[in-house]
């Protein structure tokens, strides 16, 4: 069975280590916060200006002056801090943030990522994604393996305008966990019940499979 979006987030949460400052993008990445182990200390950064982001507020306690980068109402945990946008990106560009998790429309086998524009159709903008991917050492992409038309999102080369070049190292999709190495996708884990053949079928870029590929542990 291919993973649900929640399960993708659940698998990525295992990559979050004790003491990490983590930036979560919009969409599936936002869900990761729900699955981080409770026995470790992690602080979530939202680039609009908060470190120590907490869960959504209780009904009736929403504060218009307290939102995340997805413009959702949030809370601040004890020990949280607020700051301006320039300082926020000092944290990002200055590599003070340990892990960046973001969504993508396409990822190429050289680590290029596209996630901000479909020419002539959709232009939402890059937001903070270009700053994040250009500077972060540790980037995980969370996305579905194929698009709505059933076409692979893991490509030899991105067809859409790029967000960043040679930056993605790891990808978690509904079908697999992969890393990028020597200009190829390397299969690390498969979703429970999903075969290597199915993953190969859904991957347009060069895919390397070493030996037996374990199933993901969620």
């Amino acid at each position: 069975m291919a993973l649900t979006k929640e399960q993708i987030a659940q698998r990525i949460a295992k990559e979050v280590k004790d003491g990490y400052y983590v930036n979560l993008g919009i969409g599936i990445p936002t869900l990761v916060a729900n699955f981080v182990r409770e026995d470790i200390e992690v602080e979530f950064q939202s680039e609009n200006g908060i470190l120590g982001m907490g869960p959504f507020p209780y009904d009736g306690e929403e504060d218009p002056d307290l939102i995340n980068a997805g413009k959702q109402t949030i809370t601040a945990l004890p020990g949280a801090s607020f700051f301006d946008s320039a300082l926020s990106f000092s944290m990002i560009r200055g590599q003070h943030v340990d892990l960046t998790i973001l969504g993508a429309m396409e990822v190429a086998q050289n680590g290029d990522i596209a996630n901000w524009k479909i020419p002539g159709k959709m232009v939402k903008g890059m937001g903070g994604a270009m700053d994040l991917v250009a500077s972060a050492e540790n980037i995980i992409v969370a996305m579905m393996h194929t698009n709505r038309a059933g076409e692979s999102k893991l490509l030899k080369q991105c067809s859409l305008p790029l967000t960043g070049v040679n930056c993605v190292k790891k990808i978690v999709t509904n079908l697999a966990v992969l890393k990028i190495e020597n200009n190829k996708f390397v299969l690390l884990e498969r979703a429970p019940g999903v075969s290597v053949e199915e993953i190969m079928e859904a991957t347009d870029g060069d895919l390397v499979v070493y030996g037996d590929i374990p199933e993901m542990q969620l």
């Binding site: 301006d84 320039a86 990106f89 937001g127 270009m130």
Partner: peptide, 15 residues
């Protein structure tokens, strides 16, 4: 007319 620029670049160009 629209110029889309990275958010950190936008902040830093103000700064």
């Amino acid at each position: 007319e629209v110029e889309l620029i990275p958010q950190g670049t936008l902040a830093q160009r103000c700064q």
